[in-house]
């Protein structure tokens, strides 16, 4: 690696590497540098804050009444207290790919089977506390446990009219 290339490139900050026509790339591109360390630390800190925030939120929510909310392509198809399922209930959702089977009982919810290629939603396992959720992207289904009072109680402004 000729060393003078590095100089020629650092002198012209605006130029992108490839513009040094006929010249070699500066060696700085190949060596682990201070900027990399900084970037990695920044990302770690960012993720750390997010994860801590989520854990704290989950902890505070876990004391509230759990509600099951199932969303298909953005529209809510189930919104019920988990305690309503004293008997184990099977909820089947027909989708473009086939069928998704959700099992509900009074203390947990899980996706038993799903006609989707990745099966990530099935592997997510059992959902027990508010904040838990399972997502099936190919079927656009989100199964969530939410804290009961999180978004109820404000009927005004939510709708334009009420049919009765």
């Amino acid at each position: 690696m000729p060393k003078k290339d590095g100089q020629s490139n650092t002198s012209d900050k605006l130029s992108t590497p490839h513009q040094a026509c006929g010249q070699h790339l500066p060696p700085r591109h190949f060596r682990f540098a201070s900027g990399d360390v900084f970037l990695i630390i920044a990302i770690l800190v960012f993720c750390g804050i997010l994860i801590t925030g989520m854990l704290v939120r989950r902890h505070t929510l876990s004391k509230k009444t759990p509600y099951v909310r199932i969303t298909v392509d953005g529209s809510v198809v189930m919104n019920r207290a988990l305690s309503a399922f004293a008997d184990e209930t099977e909820y089947r959702l027909a989708t473009e790919n086939g069928e998704v089977v959700v099992i509900l009982n009074d203390h947990e919810v899980y996706i038993q089977s799903s006609d989707c290629p990745d099966q990530i939603c099935v592997q997510t396992g059992k959902l027990t506390k508010p904040g838990d959720g399972a997502i099936c992207l190919p079927n656009k289904i989100v199964v969530q446990i939410v804290a009961g009072s999180s978004d109820s109680g404000e009927t005004d402004g939510k709708v334009d009219a009420v049919a009765k």
């Binding site: 509600y67 298909v72 392509d73 953005g74 529209s75 809510v76 198809v77 189930m78 919104n79 019920r80 207290a81 309503a84 909820y91 009961g148 109820s152």
Partner: peptide, 12 residues
């Protein structure tokens, strides 16, 4: 489908 949202206590 997609035009109806269930409210608390209901299943579609």
């Amino acid at each position: 489908k997609g035009r109806v949202d269930a409210e608390e206590g209901w299943t579609i």
